[in-house]
Design a binder for these strands. Sequence first.
RNA 1: CGGGGCGUAGCGCAGCCUGGUUAGCGCGCCUGCCUUGGGAGCAGGAGGUCGCAGGUUCAAAUCCUGCCGCCCCGACCA
Length: 574
Amino acid sequence: MRYSELLLPTLKETPAEAEVMSHKLLLRAGFIRKLSSGIYTYLPLGLASIRKVEQIVREEMNRAGAQELLMPMVQPADLWKESGRWEKYGPELLRFTDRHDRESCLGPTHEEVITDLVRRDIHSYRDLPLNLYQIQTKFRDEIRPRFGLMRGREFIMKDGYSFDATESGAEITYGKMFDAYHRVFKRCGLSFRAVEADTGTIGGSFSHEFMVLADTGEDTLVICRNCSYAANMEKAAVAPPEKPGEDVGLLPLQKVETPGKRKVDVVCEFLGISPRELVKTMVYLADGDPVAVLVRGDHEVQPVKLKNMLGAVDVEMVDEKQIFDITGVPSGYLGPLGLDIPCAADREVAAMVNFTVGANEKNYHLQNVNLPRDFKVFQVADLRQLTEEDKCPSCGGELELTKGIEVGHIFKLGDSYSKALKATFQDSSSEEQNFVMGCYGIGVSRTVAAAIEQNHDQHGIIFPLPLAPFQVIILNLDPKNQEITAAAESLYSQLQQEGLEVLLDDRDERPGIKFKDADLVGIPYRITIGKRFVQEGEVEIRTRADGITQSLSPDKALTEVVSAIHDGMAATWE
RNA sequence: CGGGGCGUAGCGCAGCCUGGUUAGCGCGCCUGCCUUGGGAGCAGGAGGUCGCAGGUUCAAAUCCUGCCGCCCCGACCA
C-alpha cells in the first residue's frame, strides 16, 4: 500500500475526549473515529489490526475443532422470552419493534439463537460434541461506554458455544478452549494471564478470564508468587482467619460517646484503637431488599461475593441518605446491635473479640462487642475483598496484585440454556437429555485496544508484530530524487513478493513528518531511504520496539527484514 | 441513574465573570516560493448557524430557562 493513497489521518494533537492511552493513540494514529458515544468507525488501519486478531482467532478455533458460522444480529423477542432473559437482561439489551409491531432486539450475545439452532437440527448424541463460533458486531447498550474501543456499545466479538452429551465431555471441551485461548493471545504477541473468574448469575465453578496485563486495566488480578493460583480480585477467596488466642476474655459491653466521629480512621484515632479492632456496618440493597454486612475496619466488602452468597441478581451499595431512610440512623454510627435489617458478617469479624461498632445512635459507639454474645447474624461468609497482606488461599504463599484488561472469558454453562429452551438429544439408551453447554468469548476490538495499552511509548503505538496493520514501512525521504525513489520502489515490490505487508511512505512531505507518523502508527520495522543511499549505497532499518538501527545495502536490508519478520511471527507459536 | 466537567473552524484552545461594531490564537488545510534524516521558514488564502430552542436587552458567544450531545467517577461487561 502506498501512503499517498491510504486513508490514514494522523493527528498531531490528542482530541479532548480521549482519556486512556489506547483511545488517544487509536484516534491520533488514524485507526478509529467516533460516530457517537461508544460507537466507532474503524478506518483502514484499525480494521487491518482487527482483521489480524480475527484471523488468529479463526485459525485457533478451527484448530481446536470449532466451526465458524454467522448468526443474525437482529433477534426476535420470543426467543428471549423463552429463555427468560427478555425480562432479566435489563436495559443493556437494545429493544425495538418493527413495522408489524413485532418485538426484537440487537444481539448482545447469542446463547438463545445458537441453542435454538442446535435444538432444531441436532437430535442424537452421535452428532456431539459440537463447537460453533462466530465473529460479529455485538451491541450492548452499556450504561457508560468509555475508553474508546475498550468499552464500546458496538464492538466486535468472537463468541463460541459448545454442546456436549455429558458433563465430562463438556469439561474436555472447556479444556480445549482454555488451551486454544492461550494460543490465541500468545500468537497476538500479548503478555496475558488466565485467572479464575466469577461465574455471575450463570453459576457453576468453571470460568476463566483471559487478562492482558496492563497498569491501566480495569480489573485487579490476584496472582500467587509461589503456586499457579491466579484469580480476579472479585472472585479471589480469602484464606480463613486465624482464631484468637484462647486466653482472651470477653469484656463487658460499653457505650462510649464519639461526638461527630463518623469515619473509621477518625473514630479509631479518637478511641485510641486500630481499625483492626473496629467493625464497619455496610448497607446494601440486594434486589431491592436491604442487608447489612459487617467487615473489619480496614477491610472492604466485595459486592460480587455478597451477591453470590445471597443468590441475588443485583446488589448495590446505598448512599448516606438511604442509610438513614432504611435504618433511621445517620451514617457513621451504624452497628449490628438492634439493627432492624438482616445482618451478615465476614469470617474475619466472626473471629474477632471485644471489637467496636456503631451504637445506632448519633455520636455514640459501642466497645467490647462480641459475637454471638451481643448480637446474631444470619450468615458468616467470605465477604470481603482480598488485600495485599493476605496469603494465597491455595498454598499460603505471597500474593501479587496487578491490573489487567479482560479480553476473553470462558464459561461452562451446563444445561441452564438447554433446559430453558428445551434443547435435547437422545443418548445411546434413547433417553432425552439436555445438551451440556459452554460459552467462550473474545473481545476482538478490545484486544487491539489492550495491545496498545500494553505496548506504547511517548512516540506512539508499538505494535506486536502479529497485530500490526503493516509489518514494515518504507520511508522514501525524497520522492523527487529519482535514485532514492527507484530504490524505494524496488524494495517495496521485493518485500511484497516476499509476502510481507508493506507500506510505502511516498508522500511529498518532510522527513520529520514521516518519522513521526511511522512511530505513531507503530509499524514494527522501518526502512529509511534517503541521501545516505545516494552517498553510501545504504539504507537504514530500525525496529520500532527497541529502536535498534542498522545501515545496510538494500539487498541485505531486504533479507534482514524478511528473516526478522518470519522469525518474529514464528516466535509466537507454541 | 447519581456525582463532576465540557460544548466557539478539521484538531487543541482563548474570549464569557464585567453584554457593544469585522469572534481570535496555535496546529492542520489550499496557492506560491523555499527547504528536505526527526512534526521547518516566508508570503497569500479558504474555512464559524459560537450545540439547539426560547427568553431578557437598543444590543447576546457572553446573562436567564429548557433541551440535546460529549467526557470523567460509580453499578455493567468481551
